[in-house]
Amino acid sequence: MAKKIIEVQGLEKFYGSIQVLHGVDLTIMAGEVVVVIGASGSGKSTLIRCINGLEMFNGGDILIDGYILTPARTNNRQNREELKKIRREVGMVFQQFNLFPHKTVLENVTLAPVQVRKLAKDKATAGALRLLERVGLSDQVHKYPGQLSGGQQQRVAIARSLAMEPRVMLFDEPTSALDPEMVGEVLEVMRGLANEGMTMIVVTHEMGFAREVADRVVYIDHGRILEQGPPDAIFDNPQQERTKTFLSRVLRH
């Protein structure tokens, strides 16, 4: 029986007076790959951003591998340390890559290990080179992000995140900003990670990837989890009308 690694309980989130998450419950097992789908504005990004404390929330709590985030805690400076520990457990990959443009590929990957994990520089470099090889970028390590294609940049971003040795990886539409011909190379890296047993929460519109790689698909609608289950069940036999409508819209193209 796999162990729970993330437990989101009754998560409530407001932007001003507008509620964007309505009591979201979500449990993730270690090693599980969960794909989150839903219409634009349904709260997918907000959900995963809450999970690594990038976004404060208003109600409920989030347990991550023994650490706990509560509304007060994300707000409270004394608990910054707890938040820092959580962020070391949880890596995040953004739609816009957000690589550091003034640092080389290698420096992008070694910065946090050296500064946050306090690794010696040569250790960090060796680790970074291994990761960059794994994402297929061994020959680009001394370039700057601006000199790379979008797909290459996103692979660097994944390596940068992995360098902190997270136990969970969050992906927020990692291929949405990419030219179509580069989507495959990034999904390939993600597939590899999944196969090695990384726990992953992936927000994506790549339904092929979801069907193939996900253990579970979660459909979010207007800030609520409306339906979830194995990919085949969700895609081939959705129970909710709204899920059907959404899927028929996205699967058409």
Binding site: L54, M92, V116, S161
Partner: peptide, 20 residues
């Protein structure tokens, strides 16, 4: 985005400011 990337890597506010 730069700030968030640094924060999500566990960097403190000071480190984020200084290095990023």
């Amino acid at each position: 985005g730069q700030r968030e990337a640094a924060e999500s890597l566990g960097m403190s506010e000071g480190q984020t400011l200084r290095f990023v």
